[in-house]
């Protein structure tokens, strides 16, 4: 009985930990999604620019003139990076979700065992 409730405690704790990790991963994933969208919109805008269009990049309080081609490449590079990050997070979320389900079944079993042990007394 004692042993069972100890097990239960540690299981519950790791379940909660997985849950917080999962939530964190999901919120980061949402943030990245927003960034990807923003970059996509910027890319669309840059693609519409004429070849000799003037592009500036804000660095702190000043605007610095940038090459259009360079700006485009930069945005594409950033989008690639963000997409990769999203992929990484997606697989992380998947493993965490699996872990969560595993913990749930273990906890349910422990609950049953505890109820049984309690009933036998």
């Amino acid at each position: 009985m004692e042993e069972l409730s100890m097990k239960m405690q540690s299981q519950l704790q790791s379940f909660k930990q997985v849950q917080t990790e999962l939530q964190k991963a999901i919120s980061t994933r949402q943030q990245l999604d927003g960034q990807l969208n923003e970059n996509d919109i910027v890319k669309q805008e840059l693609d519409l620019m004429p070849e000799d269009g003037k592009v500036y990049k804000s660095v702190g309080p000043v605007l610095i003139k940038t090459d259009l081609l360079e700006a485009k490449q930069n945005v594409v590079k950033r989008m690639d990076y963000i997409s990769n990050e999203i992929k990484r997070l997606d697989s992380q979320i998947e493993t965490l979700e699996k872990k969560q389900v595993e913990h749930k079944t273990v906890i349910q079993k422990l609950q049953q065992q505890l109820a049984m042990a309690g009933g036998m007394k």
Binding site: V42, K54, V55, Y56, V75
Partner: peptide, 21 residues
Amino acid sequence: VIIDVGTRYYVKKDIAGAKDY
């Protein structure tokens, strides 16, 4: 005019282009 198009990029557009934007 110079327009903020996001992610710290700004583009120069003529008035017609800006209106369109």
